[in-house]
Design a protein around this nucleic acid. Structure first.
Length: 535
RNA sequence: GGGCCCGUAGCUCAGCGGUAGAGCAGGGGACUUUUAAUCCCUUGGUCCUGGGUUCGAAUCCCAGCGGGCUCACCA
């Protein structure tokens, strides 16, 4: 993990890091990779002592082109209008469709320790007139723009075509208008029913002065204009934009040839795939960004993105796998290594950086944070499934010391992750189920001495009912010793009798969580001879 | 059709010119109270294929093959 420092080392002077997003709908987890990379780059630049500004923009004047979240009657009316002018489909707290979806996405940033110095909304920027000079230049140099499209992207626009998206004064759509005949103050506009397939224009025609928010630049020009307006020096982007003749190429050329400015340093990054496929919230593959944070806490989510090289696809498949527990385990391993503890196995290069950049607080005392006690995820997943267990007490016993405030908070975070994981993602083998209805078929594999042990344990418990997990646990060890079978076989017998599996959570607490009569009856039943038990 | 990325152990990946690595999974063992914990040991690779450069290639170059994303409409 040296990419951020290498990037930081390759530049000098003040830096402006920028990214922007079109809020056309629910944003999935993969889209958080960009903001995390942006933040890590910013931290690396600042660590080098370079004054750095982090900007994050919302391109909310872009036309609405996704109808999935609109009601049928809204489709005809809203498709093609600027996202900032489309009503919030949830009809709740936000001023617009764009504010709703961008808001949900952006709200996750702070929770991830990402704190842009400034958020900007293009629907706010245009009305101020700040974009007007760039609109004017684009119109004056329309010939150059058309040439760039032709040369770089092999897109041939008609000679009268102007790089401008006027918001129709009549129907308010921006995706359906075509502008021509720039006279230095106004353009001729036609709102066409058939300009694009996904939206229908109203047919209005007339002249418009395209300033102060009456019009927007097409995306490739808007991007280049943002670079000039904000003085952007570094702008990473997803690899979808990085293709030859794609958005970045066009905007780079426009920046140079139309706005006379060298474009910012590029830094393409790959996506996050689910099961070898691109995430797609519309296809039900992959979780929405704001949902995944309920099961993968912020530090682990940052870790997921930070530990991989940006140019590598990340394969992440949390459904029915132990991908999430492993993510925690690896995080904990790097934490231990950073704290100077012995860890097993090799460490990835730059592992201290990986850990540091995974932390929410850029100025955290890294060594101190790393040293905290972190209960293993899989272990918590067991504890959480046994009723009546005092998880905090168990974890403190394992740490052999009381938890600090931060450790206690971390435990709570992990417990809530664990519960969400068990609900929504965990594989069957991670779930415990007490076989209440009948003796599990697997219990037929019990050996005679194990059956004897179970009967004896039932007898002991009947005579003197264990009142706690502790007492059950003692009874198990004591009876096992009397019977001359080792602890492993004893536990194995209990797990088979109650869970139908060879292992499980601490058996004493498991038994203590059950009704006393049921526990004893089951012990007797499982302890009965094989032929009886299967009868 | 064009572009980019990736193909290394069952899975996820590191290594990116000098004797093939890690985690997890699998196998074996230790453990009278953390029993899916912890500790020890261990199986497992034509490093996608074929050429080339080199004293030496998983690593660099070329060509294939496979996978993914993307552009050629808009953003």
């Amino acid at each position: 993990m040296d990419w951020a420092d290498e990037l930081a080392a390759s530049v000098d002077g003040p830096q402006v890091v920028n990214d922007s997003k079109t809020p056309s709908g629910t944003v999935h987890v993969g889209s958080l990779r960009g903001p995390v990379i942006l933040d890590v780059i910013t931290r690396a630049l600042r660590a080098r002592g370079l004054p750095t500004t982090l900007l994050y923009g919302v391109d909310d004047l872009d036309p609405m082109d996704a109808q999935a979240l609109l009601s049928p009657d809204a489709i005809e009316r809203e498709m093609g209008r600027p996202l900032a002018h489309v009503p919030d489909p949830a009809g709740d707290c936000h001023a617009s469709y764009a504010r709703h979806f961008a808001g949900i996405f952006i709200d996750t940033f702070a929770g991830l320790g990402i704190h842009p110095d400034r958020y900007y909304w293009m629907s706010d920027i245009y009305p101020t007139g700040q974009m007007d000079p760039y609109i004017r230049i684009a119109l004056d140099r329309a010939e150059v723009v058309r040439d760039v499209y032709r040369r770089v992207a092999n897109v041939r626009h008609p000679d009268h075509w102007l790089p401008l998206g006027v918001i129709c004064p009549d129907c308010g759509k921006v995706g359906t208008t075509i502008a021509s005949d720039w006279d230095g103050e106004t353009v001729a506009v036609a709102c066409r029913p058939d300009l694009v397939t996904w939206a229908v224009g109203c047919g209005w025609a007339g002249r418009v002065a395209p300033f102060g928010g009456a019009a927007k630049l097409p995306w490739n020009l808007e991007w280049a204009a943002q670079w000039s307006l904000f003085g952007v020096t570094i702008e990473p982007n997803g690899k979808d934009l990085a293709t030859a003749g794609g958005s970045r190429d066009r905007s780079n050329a426009i920046s140079r040839e139309v706005y006379d400015r060298e474009p910012p340093m590029n830094f393409p990054y790959e996506f996050l795939n689910i099961g070898g496929k691109k995430m797609s919230t519309s296809k039900g593959r992959g979780a929405a960004a704001h949902t995944i944070t309920t099961v993968v806490p912020p530090e682990q989510l940052r870790f997921l993105f930070v530990r991989s090289r940006p140019e590598s696809v990340i394969e992440f498949d949390p459904e029915g796998t132990d991908a999430i527990p492993r993510l925690f385990d690896e995080f904990d391993r790097l934490a231990d290594a950073t704290a100077g503890k012995e860890v097993r196995g090799e460490l990835p290069s730059g592992h201290e950086n990986i850990f540091r950049f995974s932390l929410l607080d850029a100025d955290a005392d890294v060594a101190g944070v790393a040293d905290a006690y972190r209960p293993p995820f899989a272990h918590l997943a067991l504890l959480a499934q046994v009723p009546g267990v005092d998880v905090v007490a168990r974890v403190e016993a394992e740490k052999s010391a009381p938890l600090s405030g931060a450790e206690r908070a971390e435990l709570d975070t992990r417990l809530s992750s664990v519960r969400r994981w068990l609900e929504a993602y965990a594989p069957e083998r991670a779930r415990l189920e007490i076989r209440r209805d009948a003796l599990p078929a697997e219990a037929s594999t019990l050996r005679p001495e194990q059956r004897g042990f179970l009967r004896a344990l039932a007898e002991t418990a009947r005579a003197d009912a264990p009142a706690s997990g502790e007492q059950w646990q003692s009874a198990i060890f004591a009876v096992a010793a009397e019977h001359g079978i080792d602890a492993k076989a004893a536990f194995n017998a209990i797990y088979l009798a109650f869970l139908g599996r060879a292992n499980g959570p601490r058996a004493g607490w498991l038994l203590a969580s059950l009704e006393h009569d049921f526990a004893i009856a089951r012990l007797d039943r499982a302890g009965a001879a094989a032929e009886e038990a299967t009868a």
